[in-house]
């Protein structure tokens, strides 16, 4: 029994003993997160597929409806989200490099930028409600367009809404990381939660990288 003790070079307290070593544990955690992200790709993928089909069917209405979105707010939000990905990457770096004092500021910056994104999104949604461009009983078909323009806005709200929900969950996860970081739980040997939330946050950024051109830019060349 006592034979089975492997080379026990100081593993962190979070080490699970069914793993050979910390590197194997880290790899398993990271792989699990990637598998989850694969399911997310297909989750969003269903909506992207619906978008592709209806955009091909109602090209003119999709282009016209897309031009009613505020391109400045969309581009601004894209920049904000890219910046938040940078601060997230820096938070992961700080936790892995043992720069403990930098972890929380970078996490806070990420939360702040994520909140700015959501605030701008709120303003955009508000405008859509005021202009009667929200699908449903109060939808008014925009001038020069036909009924399928409503379909574009349905997809717009579903896709950006699901994306925004992911951002809200992400901000919750980042807040949880801050609590853990305050307790000093992250060390160069163990920073898995920061690492995995980072993967999640960057994934949400990638979704927006595709949403921005597909929703905001598709009809601009017709202007």
């Amino acid at each position: 029994m006592a034979e089975a003790v492997p080379t026990a070079h100081a593993e962190p307290p979070q080490f699970q003993h069914h793993f050979v070593d910390m590197a194997a544990q880290r790899e398993a955690s990271s792989l699990g997160m990637w598998v989850f992200l694969v399911t997310e790709v297909l989750f969003f993928g269903g909506m992207f597929t619906a978008y592709v089909v209806y955009r091909a069917s109602f090209r003119h209405d999709f282009e016209g409806a897309s031009n009613l979105l505020d391109i400045r707010l969309g581009a601004f939000n894209t920049a904000v989200l890219i910046m938040s990905s940078l601060t997230m990457a820096l938070a992961v770096w700080a936790s892995a490099a043992g720069r403990r004092k930098l972890i929380i500021p970078f996490l806070l910056a990420t939360i702040l930028l994520g909140s700015v994104f959501l605030g701008v999104k709120f303003l955009e949604y508000k405008q859509k409600f005021e202009h009667h461009e929200v699908p449903g009983a109060h939808f008014v078909v925009p001038e020069g367009l036909a009924k399928p323009s409503e379909l574009f806005f349905s997809l717009y709200f579903c896709m950006t809404g699901l994306h925004a929900l992911h951002m809200i969950i992400g901000i919750g996860l980042l807040s949880w990381l801050i609590l853990k970081a305050r307790r000093g739980e992250f060390t160069p040997q163990y920073n898995t939660p920061v690492d995995l939330v980072g993967l999640y946050w960057h994934f949400v950024d990638i979704v927006w990288i595709f949403l921005f051109p597909l929703l905001y830019l598709l009809g601009r060349h017709t202007l």
């Binding site: 990905s85 997230m88 990457a89 980072g198 993967l199 960057h202 994934f203 950024d205 990638i206 990288i209």
Partner: peptide, 9 residues
């Protein structure tokens, strides 16, 4: 997306 996945992730 590739830049984000390869470097940030």
């Amino acid at each position: 997306a590739l830049l984000v996945a390869l470097i940030f992730m």
